[in-house]
């Protein structure tokens, strides 16, 4: 059985114009130790999915309208706040986009790691501190014992993100959600962080859900990917299969935006193509049509009249497009 199973999840948020589904009928499974990636432009509901998994949807604004999130046989949408709190940071943890502001400025990084260990594993102050130092060492902070007593402002962005990873992995969670973990970092550091995440995944056996809009990161990090568009799943499948043969025109567009994923430097390179247009406005999200149709060069009359079903290609690959089979 899958470690995490999301079924027909629908998340609605209140806007001035009314209720809009930011996540519309999303289903996927995640196995233990697996690496799954969510890809899509800004505003496609990637981060909302992450927050829903953590039970941290913004209060009074977003809520799960229907569907289920089953983790280890337990439906998280029905779980009590206390139960969710016990899971957060212990079984499911999360890394945020902005390492510069994700650490509390008033506590040393060692204290912040130890805090999680004490809260979830009931370690003593001394044990938690020792383990915090070990974790800092594991995320390759040099001179960990001394650096544990540093405050966040004494560290660089890359180091802070390592500390965040140490906090997230302190309790060896079953799932680690990384919400654009490298967006705020410069390119050389990005590669180091991805290496580190891969390493830590091997060591702890945590499954990783990577949220990103960087196709290059997906190719490097993930085994399977989900392409999200306007709150809906556009395509799901193994990364290799999708990159080799995208079935959804949006996926194809995203891939063609990235230089030389496909071609080597010596061969003839294709021109970079942009995906024209922008993501539709929130109030259009729930409509019964293909939301990508307005930006799609393969659009047909059918596309604006009815929402496309998810068409399966083999056991592992699905795409929600009327013309998926032709493309």
């Amino acid at each position: 059985m899958a470690l995490l199973s999301v079924k027909n999840l629908r998340i609605e948020i209140k806007t001035r114009a009314g209720v809009a589904p930011v996540i519309d009928d999303l289903s996927f499974d995640l196995d233990a130790g697996e690496s799954l990636s969510f890809v899509g432009e800004s505003g496609c509901g990637k981060s909302m999915t992450a927050l829903a998994l953590m039970g941290l949807l913004p209060e009074g604004v977003g809520s799960v309208a229907s569907g289920s999130i089953t983790f280890d046989g337990e439906d998280l949408t029905q779980a009590s706040e206390a139960r969710l709190r016990a899971l957060r940071g212990n079984d499911i943890s999360m890394i945020f986009q902005e390492p510069m502001t994700s650490l509390n400025p008033l506590y040393t990084v060692g204290e912040q790691i130890a805090e999680v260990l004490r809260a979830h594993q009931g370690l003593s102050r001394k044990q938690a501190w020792d383990q915090a130092v070990e974790l800092l060492d594991a995320v390759r902070i040099p001179n960990a014992r001394a650096r544990a007593e540093d405050y966040p402002f004494q560290m660089s962005g890359g180091q802070r993100q390592r500390v965040m990873i140490a906090i997230a992995l302190a309790c060896q969670p079953k799932i680690l959600i990384a919400d654009e973990p490298t967006t705020a970092l410069d390119v050389t550091v990005q590669a180091q962080i991805f290496d580190l995440l891969q390493d830590m995944r091997r060591q702890t056996g945590s499954a990783i859900i990577l949220i990103t809009h960087d196709m290059g990161a997906v190719a490097e990090m993930a085994e399977r990917m989900i392409v999200m568009y306007a709150g809906r799943k556009a395509e799901l499948g193994p990364v290799d299969t999708i990159i080799a043969h995208p079935r959804h025109p949006y996926t194809a567009g995203l891939i063609s935006c990235v230089p030389h994923i496909l071609s080597t430097l010596t061969s003839e390179r294709e021109d970079l193509v942009e995906v024209p247009g922008i993501v539709p406005a929130l109030q259009d999200f729930g409509k019964d049509l293909c939301l990508f149709a307005s930006r799609c060069r393969h659009a047909q009359p059918k596309c604006v009249n009815q929402r496309p079903p998810e068409i399966a290609f083999g056991n592992t690959h699905q795409a929600a497009c009327w013309r998926a089979e032709e493309l």
Partner: peptide
């Protein structure tokens, strides 16, 4: 609303904490 509060929440901090 700051990120580190969200991060603490995500690591399971209670409301009192």
């Amino acid at each position: 609303e700051l990120e580190y509060v969200m991060a603490s929440r995500a690591s399971g901090a209670t409301n009192a904490k």
